[in-house]
Each structure stands twice: as structure tokens, then as C-alpha cells.
Nucleic acid binder design. Structure first.
Length: 757
DNA sequence: CCGATACGCATTTTT
DNA sequence: TGCGTATCGG
């Protein structure tokens, strides 16, 4: 069945799809059919002279690649779709690097260090160098080194750069350059690359080995890049190496959704694409097919506050829709409750499935209150992000064995398991090995293999223990090349003593560990049978499994699985859509996050992040903030986010306590960040009374019986005397004379009162 | 050298 | 709050 490009695409989409003569930039507003353009374009290329292996398509997540592949498979021959080079930068380039590893002084079995490995290695390097860990915060050092790598700055260049040195000195960390060099060498020593290295070494490979480069140039005749606004300099440079001559490149993205600068992403890549590729054709997709007009316009009004962007006018032809609804709650617990209640209500009244809801927050730590509230209402949910399966301790332990078996020079894996399960090799011995390795400029494993030659100063009994460990790993290594991954892993878990350790008792905390390890084994079993079907001739090796999972992230798991509400960070929600979206924690310090400081650039990124959040919503978008929040073990006060003032009030509605029209405005006026001309008072007429908000400190008092003559305290009106009570159930109304606020008639259902006497 | 226990500490987003 | 590290007794 031929694809009817004209009927199935709008005019701009069609033009973007069929243009293949030179570089093109597709600016795709939120919900404008970006993925559609990419899939149709790839199908079009396949129908017009390109072989699948000649197409390189880079996506941001593995899941995006998988989904796109499936869609293309439905349009063209499935086998051809499978043969496409489609995936994340990191996964595709790691595959290339495994093939070409020898050029760079690595073996094809190199380990990929994750962020935790990097941190741990940096920590030990700082310690060895005798640096104060309070000043040289590992996180800070890590991000400096990461930024350097993302900008293709080698340790030597880093060390000789005056500006860099000065900036490091100003932050009190002049030795970062020494750490960087040491870290670089230690990774090489360990035959390991971190995430950033996967890009850096690919660049170096192409730069230093022209024949290798020309091979890949020849192969990748057309390059497509998704989410181009989130690429960094290293990624840009690699792409440029590949397409410089042919200029057959199409990048797709939305500058308004650039949210990964902390990972080195450079919004200028997309803003200045036309300068780098001079004959670029620009296509702008401006029709949003996802959201109501109100949501689109609200998002537009927000993003207009940013200076740094490509002009576009996103519009929707869908229903006008409801305004964004803003909730204020007294505490974070109440925020959880009100969201859970709202979900229950929409589920019942408007028949939404739970999969139609998402709760989006700025930081993972916020998920807790929502989990509790949803559980309380009996609503199933699923959390995306946070710590993934592969980051759990017991799983990392097992994986460390796998890693060491495949790459015995892996320092981090070595340190993790040399004494797990306990084999009486303690800190003192490990330090000795570390020192010896550093002095001789070799890996830990090398020391272990020839302790005598390196004069490792240990006694007989310790030496025997080390020898046992060495032989254990060596015995696994002999099989790793041919034995099936499932058999290997079972063998490893048995003979390493992990099985014994976990199964020796029935402590409740060991039950979870046991289940997790079993799940891992099942996963490997499943992986093996699937792979075996695909390629019956080859054994499925441990290495195959490991390379499958290291770059696997939580982003890659499917969302609409089961009847569950989705909870995730705004970052994780990029590319997804839901009928009903709750954006929670809209508070100063939280969103925008205090880490962003007051710099315009960082604040613009936070604003783009908020833009991403709003544009996930198809029908309803709810915003909420809490006045108090439990944080770091204490209650803290918060003010509403300045971003709430960035949205045009025509598209927003305040849901609030029934009484007192001027309360929120007064509070907001107190906030130092609010520009005077944008305060709420002049628009208070637009506010509508909608819902009552529960509150922990006041909530339970809402149900108490209020009697005439009692003295009560109101959250905002203060102390008053009850003059009269009338009505019943939902509509019990009290007349109260407040000392400062005068006479008020209050519906108790909506009112939070404390009885004073 | 191990394990328990106390204490201090820092808490953004993630391929 | 909950984690990782420092310190203790065994």
C-alpha cells in the first residue's frame, strides 16, 4: 500500500518531508507532528533511493527510536525498517566505538561508567590527592569535567586554558585540572568510558583516523537528528564531521523546549544552525494538534517572556477548552490530597482512564506526597525516573560481577565486589592495592594478577584471599566468550556467594533483594530467548546483555501500561502527552528552582521547562502550589512561583477558598520577585470561586461542630466569635464576627477553623 | 576486619 | 528526611 504523503501530512509537513537536496531545519512547535515528519521523511527516503543502512537517525531516548522504527515498519517493509541506524547518540556511537576501540587504545569490551561510577572514582581521586572534600564537592567537580568534555576540551587543553583556571580558582578549586587529568587516565587505565567519553572519543576517532571517518561518511548518506535543541557541542561536531561534504542533514527540534543545558546542551546549535549549514531550508510547524486553544495560548503567553528564541506562532484549531486552573494549598500534603481528589472526580464524572493523568514535578523528591495521597484514594500510579531497577544496590552488585568478568580492569566494579559478599578483604588491603596500582601505573587487576611482582605488602592469609578472588573471576572469564548469558549469570550468582548471602536468612529486607535478583535473572533469561530467536546461530553472551542495559534508562519504559496515573519530573515528560496534566510545586525556589539562581539564562531555561510541562496537556491543565512544604526534615514556607504571573490571565483561573477576594493578591504583592504591573489585584474580578482546599493544620477542624458563642480562629481572618449557625450537612453556615475582619458568613464546608475556646 | 550505631550532611533536571 | 561516612566495640 503506497504512502499518500500529500493527504496524510499538512502542507509544511509535506514540504519538510520531501525536501532532501540539502540541509534542513524543522522548527516544530509543541504537538505539531514532529515525529510524524521524521517517520514520513525516513519512509520517503527509503522509497527514493536510500538503503536503510545509509540512514542515520539520532533520537534522544531509545524509546523514541523504537517507536519510530515501529511506525516506519508499518509504512515500509519491516526488514528494511529494522536495518535503519536509529537510536540515541550514546547507544549508536558506543556500538561504533566497540568496533573501532583498538584505534583509541581501548578493547571492545570497555566498560561504560555511569554517573555513580564517575562520582565514586572522582571521590577517590580527590581523596588520594589530599583535597578537602568540603571544597572540592564531587558533584561540582563532576559537572566541570563533564562540561569540558561536552565542549571537547582535553585535560591538556583544560590545564593550559587561563580562563578556565581562573574560574576554577575563583570557586576555590584550582586543582580541578589535576583531577581531570587523573580521572582521564584512570578511566583509560580501567578500559572505561563515561557517558561524555562516548561522544568525545567518537569525535577523536573521526578526527584522527580519516579512513575510519570516510568509511562512516560513505555509510551514513543521510543524517537526521531529533530534539536538536538538546544537543551539545560534541554532538554537533560529530554530526558536522559526518555530513560536512554531502550536507544531507535534517534536524528537528523546538528551541522553546531546550531544557538540558545542565548536560551541556547548547541552544545555539539550533538557533545558529543556518550559519553553520549555509543553504539551510527552514520549515516551521506551527499548528498544534494536541492541545486546546486555551492551553496553546497560555503556553504562548508564557514563552513570550523569553528573549532568546526563534519567532513562531503556535496555534490550535481544537476546542477553546477550559482555562488553566490554579490551586493554592496550605501544605504539600494538602497539595497531594487535592490532586488525588481532582483525579478521582474527573475519573468519575468525565470517565477518564487513569492513564489519562500525569502529575509533573520539578524534582523527584516531590513524588512522595502524591504517592501517599494516591494510595490513600486507592488510585494506582507509576513513577518514572527516580532510581531505576538497575540502580538498586543488589542489582548493581550483580552487574559489577558481570562487568569485571568482561573487563577485569574495571576499577569501580572491582572496588564494589572485591569484598562482597564478605571475604575478609578490607579497606586497608584495598588501599594497598590502589596505592600499588597508582605507583606502577597499572590497573587494580594487574596488581591482583601478579602481587609478588608488584611487591604488594600483604600477609600470607590476605594474599590467599586475594588469590581466591582472582581465581574466581578468572574462572568466569574463561567461559564468558562462548557460554550463554543466562547460564553465566546463574553460575556467577551461585559461585560468587551472592546466592548464599541473600538466601541464608529470611529477613524481610532480604526478601526484596532476593526478588530483585530473581527478576534480573528472569530478565536475562527473557533477553536470551528473544535474541536467540532473532539470531539462532550465535550464542547470546553476557556482553550482549550488558551493553543492552547500560544505556537503558527509565525513559525507555512504556508509559501507558495498565490503568495507572503517571508521576514524573517535567524533564521526563518531554515528548509525552496526557489529557489531564497536574503541574505541582509551582513555588519560588522550587520552580524556578533555586539552583537556577537569578541569571537570566538559567531562568529562561526554567521557563522553557514550564512551557514543556504545560504543552503536555491535551484537555486540562492544573497548576498548584503549597504555602508550606516539608523539606530536609523541616517545614519551610514558600511563595507562589513568579512563572504564574507570566501566563496571560485570560487563560488562567484561580481555584480558591470561597471567601476573601483580595487575599491571594495581597500575598503575592509581598513577593519581591513580582513585577508591579503584573500583580493580581487588577484582575481579581476574573477570579472565580471554585473549590475548597483542605489543609492539614486546619482541615480536621472543618468537620467539628461549631457552636454559638465559641471563639474560633480563621486561617486568614484571625480571631472571631460565632454568632449563629444554620443549615445542615454540606451547607452548614456560620455567622462569625471577626475582630479584624468584621462580620462574615462562612460555609463550614469551605472554611478552616480552629476552636480557640 | 566486621558490623552496628551515631552522626553529620546535602538535597535539580539525566543520556 | 534518608543517605553515606566516621567511629566505636567485638
Amino acid at each position: 500500500m503506497p504512502i499518500n504523503y500529500i493527504d496524510e501530512l499538512n502542507e509544511t509537513q509535506y514540504e519538510a518531508v520531501v525536501y532532501k537536496e540539502g540541509p534542513s531545519l524543522v522548527i516544530a512547535g509543541a504537538g505539531s507532528g514532529k515525529t510524524r515528519v521524521l517517520t514520513y521523511k525516513i519512509a520517503y527516503l527509503l522509497e527514493n533511493g536510500y538503503a536503510p543502512w545509509n540512514i542515520l537517525a539520532l533520537t534522544f531516548t531509545n524509546k523514541a527510536a523504537r517507536e519510530m522504527k515501529e511506525r516506519i515498519a508499518g509504512m515500509v517493509n519491516e526488514k528494511r525498517a529494522q536495518a535503519l541506524f536509529m537510536g540515541t547518540f550514546h547507544s549508536l556511537f558506543s556500538r561504533i566505538l566497540r568496533v573501532e576501540a583498538a584505534h583509541l587504545g581501548f578493547t571492545s569490551q570497555f566498560t561504560i561508567y555511569d554517573a555513580a561510577d564517575t562520582k565514586s572514582l572522582l571521590r577517590s581521586i580527590s581523596k588520594e590527592m589530599g583535597l578537602d572534600e568540603k571544597i572540592y564537592r564531587t558533584g561540582a567537580v563532576q559537572s566541570r569535567i563533564s562540561q569540558a568534555k561536552n565542549r571537547l576540551v582535553l585535560p591538556s587543553a583544560y590545564a593550559s586554558n587561563r580562563d578556565v583556571y581562573e574560574s576554577d580558582s575563583i570557586s576555590g578549586m584550582p586543582a580541578v585540572r589535576d583531577i581531570y587529568l587523573q580521572y582521564w587516565n584512570r578511566c583509560r587505565q580501567a578500559n572505561a568510558m563515561d557517558f561524555d567519553d562516548l561522544l568525545f572519543y567518537t569525535f577523536i576517532l573521526f578526527r584522527d583516523f580519516p579512513d575510519v571517518l570516510s568509511r562512516y561518511r560513505e555509510q551514513f548518506r543521510y543524517v537526521l537528528v531529533d530534539e536538536y535543541q538538546d544537543t551539545n557541542f560534541a554532538q554537533h561536531s560529530i554530526i558536522f564531521q559526518l555530513v560536512k561534504e554531502r550536507q544531507r542533514i535534517c534536524v528537528v527540534g523546538d528551541d522553546a523546549q531546550s531544557i538540558y543545558s545542565f548536560r551541556g546542551a547548547d541552544i545555539d546549535n539550533i538557533l545558529r544552525f543556518g550559519e553553520i549549514y549555509p543553504n539551510t531550508r527552514l520549515f516551521k510547524l506551527e499548528q498544534n494538534y494536541r492541545s486546546t486553544q486555551t492551553i496553546v495560548q497560555a503556553a504562548n503567553s508564557l514563552i513570550k517572556k523569553n528573549q532568546h528564541q526563534i519567532y513562531k506562532e503556535v496555534f490550535s484549531k481544537k476546542d477553546l477548552g477550559d482555562p488553566l486552573l490554579v490551586f493554592e494549598t496550605a501544605s504539600d500534603t494538602d497539595e497531594g490530597k487535592i490532586v488525588a481528589d481532582k483525579i478521582t472526580e474527573l475519573h468519575r464524572k468525565e470517565n477518564y482512564s487513569y492513564t489519562d493523568f500525569a502529575i509533573l514535578y520539578r524534582t523527584n523528591a516531590q513524588s512522595r506526597v502524591f504517592e501517599e495521597a494516591l494510595r490513600g484514594c486507592g488510585i494506582l500510579y507509576r513513577i518514572y525516573g527516580g532510581l531505576s531497577f538497575y540502580q538498586r544496590k543488589e542489582i548493581k552488585d550483580v552487574i559489577a560481577y558481570f562487568r569485571l568478568v568482561l573487563n577485569p580492569n574495571d576499577e569501580e566494579a572491582f572496588k564494589r565486589i572485591v569484598n562482597y559478599p564478605a571475604r575478609n578483604i578490607g579497606g586497608v588491603t584495598i588501599t594497598k592495592i590502589l596505592t600499588s596500582a597508582r605507583d606502577n601505573n597499572v590497573s587494580l587487576w594487574e596488581i591482583l594478577s601478579k602481587p609478588l611482582a608488584y611487591e604488594l605488602p600483604v600477609n600470607k592469609s590476605t594474599s590467599a584471599k586475594l588469590q581466591n578472588f582472582y581465581e574466581l573471576i578468572e574462572s568466569f572469564r574463561t567461559n564468558a566468550g562462548e557460554k550463554n548469558a543466562y547460564e553465566m549469570s546463574v553460575d556467577i550468582i551461585r559461585r560468587s556467594g551472592i546466592m548464599n548471602d541473600v538466601y541464608s536468612d529470611n529477613l524481610p529486607e532480604n526478601r526484596d533483594r532476593k526478588e530483585n535478583i530473581e527478576e534480573l535473572i528472569n530478565g536475562i533469561h527473557h533477553f536470551c530467548s528473544v535474541r536467540q530467536e532473532e539470531e539462532p546461530a550465535l550464542p547470546v553472551l553476557l556482553a550482549d546483555f550488558l551493553s543492552e542495559i547500560v544505556l537503558h534508562t527509565d525513559q525507555d519504559t512504556d508509559v501507558n501500561e495498565g490503568e495507572r496515573v503517571s508521576l514524573m519530573t517535567v524533564h521526563a515528560a518531554k515528548g509525552l502527552e496526557f489529557s489531564n496534566v497536574f503541574i505541582v510545586g509551582m513555588e519560588e525556589g522550587l520552580f524556578p528552582n533555586f539552583m537556577a539562581g537569578e541569571s537570566a539564562r538559567a531562568l529562561e531555561e526554567e521557563r522553557r521547562l514550564f512551557y514543556v510541562a504545560i504543552t503536555r496537556a491535551k484537555v486540562h491543565c492544573f497548576l498548584s502550589y503549597a504555602r508550606t512544604r516539608f523539606r530536609y526534615g523541616r517545614t519551610e514556607f514558600a511563595n507562589p512561583s513568579r512563572f504564574l504571573h507570566d501566563i496571560d490571565l485570560d487563560f488562567m483561573q484561580l481555584s480558591r477558598n470561597a471567601e476573601s477576594d483580595d487575599e491571594i493578591p495581597t500575598r503575592i504583592r509581598r513577593d519581591k520577585y513580582v513585577p508591579k504591573e503584573q500583580t493580581f489585584p487588577n484582575v481579581s474580578k476574573k477570579m472565580t470561586k471554585v473549590t475548597s482546599l483542605a489543609s492539614s493544620s486546619w482541615a480536621n477542624t472543618a468537620n467539628i461542630t461549631v457552636r454559638i458563642g465559641q471563639t474560633v480562629e480563621h486561617e486568614r481572618f484571625g480571631i472571631g466569635e460565632v454568632l449563629n449557625v444554620e443549615g445542615e450537612n454540606e451547607s452548614i453556615k456560620a455567622t462569625i464576627l471577626f475582630k479584624n475582619a468584621g462580620n462574615k458568613q462562612l460555609l463550614l464546608r469551605f472554611t478552616k477553623l480552629k476552636v480557640v475556646e
